[in-house]
Design a protein around this nucleic acid. Sequence first.
DNA 1: ATCCCATGTGTACCAGCGTACACATGGCTG
DNA 2: CAGCCATGTGTACGCTGGTACACATGGGAT
Lengths: 194, 194
Amino acid sequence: MAARRYDPERRQRIIDAAIRVVGAKGIAGLSHRSVAAEADVPLGSTTYHFKTLDDLMVAALRQTNEGFAKVVREHGGALADPGADLAAELARLTGEWLDGDRPGVELEYELYLAALRRPALRPVAAEWCDEVTELIARRTDHVTARATAALIDGICLQVLLTGGAYDEAYAHEVLARVIDGPAGAGDARRATGR
Amino acid sequence: MAARRYDPERRQRIIDAAIRVVGAKGIAGLSHRSVAAEADVPLGSTTYHFKTLDDLMVAALRQTNEGFAKVVREHGGALADPGADLAAELARLTGEWLDGDRPGVELEYELYLAALRRPALRPVAAEWCDEVTELIARRTDHVTARATAALIDGICLQVLLTGGAYDEAYAHEVLARVIDGPAGAGDARRATGR
DNA sequence: ATCCCATGTGTACCAGCGTACACATGGCTG
DNA sequence: CAGCCATGTGTACGCTGGTACACATGGGAT
């Protein structure tokens, strides 16, 4: 098998350092050198483990994708409860995520949005999308889940990009429209968008 | 008045060149030099008109913000018609925007999303948000308009970031939920328990 | 025990960057 | 019509970046 001689954690430490660098200076501040300094390893070590910065970003994005999932795991027990108000629960979770670790959220979105210009990141961004959708789809049909994920993304973006505050009541209200929309109209199962 | 000696269009040409550069190489490829080369002006000229790259990006973002508005102006006549199906109209317009000028859309989003890490861009991003919201708010209340704008953003993002295709029927369906959701009354949405 | 090679290290090269600054030019004000 | 100064130009400096490459080391296969 792979034989990691001296520092079996070397690669992982570089990824962690990259995440800290992006958090502190943004993607623009990410370089082999800055990561090497942050991880306290020589320059050659970062170029050895990650030939290109895209490779490093893919690894970092994969790791940060855990962020929201972690919040869900820790505070989202009610999500699975069929009796709970799904829209209210999602609005609450999103608020906790945004208010609890704003730098972490910004970092996660920065890496996520970087996929716009870096095709290498797109599969990872798509994974993240699918994971959130699947999570919601345990309580709704697939179309509703996709739309709910999109709406949450849009709401978060508006908060992050404009510097405004998160309004949980507003989020609850409009999330409910998407989630309860097809149920309230009478034909409960009318979703076959794809 | 300002006295532009030789080249009254100099500043504007630099902005246009900056937009072309971002379109071709992304924000990461934007520099005083690359813009100067693209605009065919000496280096000193770009640094004279725009002290920092942020200044240049603000000007570029302001200009690109016209993109969607332009589509609306040219193809969105029905938007103002109170008899038209607003959700269908928006879904159609978004499709035209995404399919008609994909590079332009990516460029616009790249500049828009750059506000995440560049506070200087946030006021401009907020302006763009407000403009779209106001446009929609001519047919709906303000909360609905904001949510609709957020949902459109989210849907576009999912298309752009994951490389998927735009599904107009899906967009129509979920936009309708947000827009028609509060059909009963403004705040009595929870009253219709079953 | 020996050797291979994955892993790790140090350094040098060159390109591109922001910035600064001295200088050129000619419309506008007075 | 004379001078000011907004505008425009060319060049140089110091820094940081990606990349390449020669060299070091020691675990495991033989």
